[in-house]
């Protein structure tokens, strides 16, 4: 079958080392890294929600807000797919520890924040979004599987879709199982057709997995340190402005991604982002 063509209108990125997509672009053209960031600002949330929200929500909302601002679209108009390999590992750790020691003392707020769709819930509430929202995972393939789900929705229903893929860092002992030692989140606004805000166009084909994609350091290390950071393969491709990559979408399935077109040079994306933030 012919490739799935999808268009990117916005890109969000946050890790301790990268505050947004422009920081990745700067790094890849040789600039030095800024000092590590403390926590995502997540300014889309009202201040009281920001204080109450768990870290996984702050991270997801931060990158979602960046990508949607860059696209110029109204957040309430976007269907959304939130992908995460492990959900909120800090809450899982709290819940399992509390259940082992004093189960009847479990916090009701932390319980309702423990659902995998907590970021989708906080995001739709903060933005007044009534469009379909979903929360998905596929372990180490959560970025590729989430991307396929978002593309599928955008093309089948001919609507723009916000994709968020994020995982916070875990703590001992759970981190030994999750392998997420650093936070990483990214977001893309995907559209079924070219528009005035198209940043790049991708042709995507389902392919057997197997080809091992590599990244230069420090990206390779960051990718190993977080399940969601497989997204760096695509983000680095976008920053490079040409070529192809492959991300895993299931145990034996990959997404072969061919970058067809970049609407504007990378630094313009930076400037547009800054304008929106300002």
């Amino acid at each position: 079958m012919s490739p799935l063509r999808i268009h990117i209108e916005g890109i969000g990125l946050w890790s301790k080392h990268l505050g947004n997509y422009a920081a990745l672009q700067s790094l890849l053209v040789g600039d030095t890294l800024e000092p590590p960031l403390s926590k995502p600002a997540a300014t889309t949330l009202p201040p009281n929600e920001r204080r109450r929200a768990p870290e996984s929500v702050l991270l997801a909302v931060e990158v979602a807000g960046q990508a949607v601002a860059m696209s110029g679209r109204a957040p309430a108009s976007l269907a959304c797919v939130f992908s995460s390999s492990h959900g909120d590992q800090a809450i899982t750790d709290y819940m399992c520890a509390t259940l082992a020691s004093a189960p009847t003392e479990l916090s009701p707020i932390r319980f309702h924040n423990s659902v995998h769709n907590a970021p989708a819930g906080y995001w739709t509430i903060a933005t007044g979004c009534h469009e379909p929202s979903t929360a998905v995972c596929a372990h180490r393939m959560s970025f590729g599987a989430g991307l396929l789900e978002a593309i599928s929705q955008a093309l089948a229903d001919q609507c723009p879709v916000l994709l968020v893929c994020s995982d916070i860092a875990g703590a001992y002992p759970l981190v030994e199982e999750t392998g997420c030692t650093q936070s990483f989140g990214c977001a893309l606004v995907l559209a079924p057709a070219v528009s005035g805000t198209t940043l790049a166009s991708l042709d995507i084909t389902l392919a057997p997995s197997g080809s091992v994609e590599t990244l230069p350091e420090p990206l390779a290390g960051w990718r190993d340190a977080n399940a969601s950071a497989d997204a760096l393969l695509l983000l680095a491709l976008l920053a490079r402005g040409h070529g192809r990559c492959q991300v895993d979408a299931a145990a034996t399935l990959g997404l072969h991604i061919e970058l067809q077109q970049v609407a504007m040079p990378g630094l313009d994306v930076h400037h547009r982002n800054v304008e929106h933030v300002a």
Binding site: S133, A138, A145, L148, L206, A249, A251, L253
Partner: peptide, 9 residues
């Protein structure tokens, strides 16, 4: 061996 997804809402 096709697409494989967990939905957790």
């Amino acid at each position: 061996e096709g697409p494989c997804l967990t939905i957790s809402t």
